[in-house]
């Protein structure tokens, strides 16, 4: 007869020991790399390119306070229309950086099953955030804690950036401003660094 209270007590103790935000509510992380298709269940995601520069040019020219990391990504939803937002860049010191909508950049778009949707996420980050930076992307909006996103799959894509990509350093970032465009369907395969059909 002691077994039932003991089981309830053990379960209660276990739940109180687990950190709420990092375990109980945490999303399902699915790893990936630049150029790989990440299967999230509700959508497929490919990060097609990562560029670094001090300026971006789209709707006017924006000058970085740190450096701009521009991540080109392609979304295709699995079976219905979904909102994808919540783009975050997490650096090796676990600092979280949000995407900006300055110049022609976007922080969110809509993914559909019929075609692939391209979007450029722009992050203005300090140069020391490049080394080991990871991109976290998922459905929903307003950061990873945003509506509809937590407890669902989140793509974690290593961007493969090092300190050598800091503008002004030896290997340098692109000297010219990075051209960015708003979200739009991908019409021709191969024109967007897209290797996955």
């Amino acid at each position: 007869m002691l077994l039932a209270p003991a089981a309830i007590g053990a379960a209660t103790w276990f739940v109180t020991q687990v950190p709420q935000d990092t375990a109980v509510d945490a999303p399902f992380e699915i790893g990936g790399a630049v150029g790989e298709t990440v299967h999230l269940g509700y959508a497929d995601l490919v990060v097609t390119d990562v560029r670094v520069a001090e300026q971006i040019a789209g709707d006017g020219v924006a000058q970085a306070g740190g450096v701009f990391v521009v991540v080109d990504a392609v979304w295709q939803a699995s079976d219905r229309t979904i909102a994808v937002g919540g783009a975050e860049l997490v650096d090796s010191r676990e600092r979280v950086h949000a995407a900006t909508d300055r110049s022609g950049c976007a922080t969110a778009t809509t993914a559909v099953p019929a075609y692939r949707q391209r979007i450029s996420y722009c992050f203005d980050v300090p140069p020391d955030a490049l080394d080991g930076a990871q991109l976290r992307l998922g459905r929903g909006g307003d950061g990873e804690e945003g509506a509809f996103q937590r407890r669902d799959a989140v793509a974690v894509v290593g961007l493969g950036l090092g300190l050598d990509r800091v503008p002004g350093e030896e290997a340098g970032a692109d000297a010219a401003p990075i051209e960015v465009h708003g979200p739009a369907p991908v019409v021709r395969t191969g024109t967007d660094g897209q290797e996955d059909a």
Partner: peptide
């Protein structure tokens, strides 16, 4: 936004 049917 597009003027032809996308590949795929």
């Amino acid at each position: 936004e597009i003027d032809s049917v996308p590949d795929g």
